[in-house]
Amino acid sequence: MNTPLKILISGQHGQVSRELQQRLGDLGELVVLGREQLDLGDPEQIRQQVRAIAPHLIINAAAHTAVDQAESEPDLAFAINARAPGIFAQEAFERGVPLIHYSTDYVFDGSKSAPYVEDDEPNPLSVYGQSKLAGERAIEQVQGQHLILRTSWVYSSHGKNFLLTMQRLLQERPELRVVADQIGAPTWAGSIAHSTRALIQRWRSGNPGAWGTYHLTAQGETSWFGFAQAIGEQLRAQGLPCAALEAIPASAYPTPAPRPLNSRLDCSRLTQEWGVTQPDWHSALRECLAEQA
Rank of each mutant, 00 (worst) to 15 (best):
I183M: 05
A114N: 04
Q15T: 03
H56M: 00
L170Q: 04
S223I: 04
G96H: 07
R177Y: 06
L235C: 14
L147A: 05
F93I: 02
I9W: 09
L5Y: 07
T187V: 08
A230L: 07
S72Y: 09
Y106V: 05
Y116M: 06
R236T: 02
H56W: 02
A180R: 06
Q143T: 06
A54K: 12
G110F: 12
G96K: 02
E287M: 05
L265M: 12
F88M: 07
A66Q: 12
H282Y: 13
H194M: 11
D280M: 14
L164R: 14
G41Q: 15
Q292R: 11
L285K: 15
W188L: 06
D181Q: 03
S223E: 15
E221G: 07
A134P: 03
E94L: 15
D26L: 08
G190N: 08
Q15G: 04
A63K: 00
N262L: 13
G34D: 11
L38P: 06
V178S: 13
A70N: 00
K160W: 12
E36H: 11
L20E: 01
S131N: 12
G239A: 01
K132D: 12
H13F: 09
E246L: 14
Q15P: 07
E71H: 02
P122T: 04
T65P: 07
A185L: 03
G25R: 12
P124L: 00
I183D: 02
G226H: 09
R197S: 03
A252E: 10
W211R: 01
P256S: 11
E246T: 13
I183E: 03
Q292W: 05
Q45E: 15
H13Q: 11
R35D: 12
E287L: 10
W224I: 10
Q201P: 04
G11W: 08
G184R: 01
L33P: 00
R259I: 09
W281K: 04
E94F: 11
L125A: 02
D105N: 01
A61Q: 08
G14W: 06
A54L: 13
E287R: 15
G184D: 12
E94W: 13
T271A: 15
T222E: 01
L99W: 07
G184V: 08
I80A: 06
T65C: 15
R35M: 08
F93C: 12
F227H: 13
N262C: 13
Q219V: 09
K160C: 09
L285F: 14
R18F: 05
L27R: 14
A138N: 09
L149W: 00
I100E: 05
Q90Y: 13
A92W: 03
Q12M: 05
P260R: 13
G209Y: 08
P85W: 02
R236C: 08
G14K: 05
Y128F: 06
E221M: 02
G11V: 10
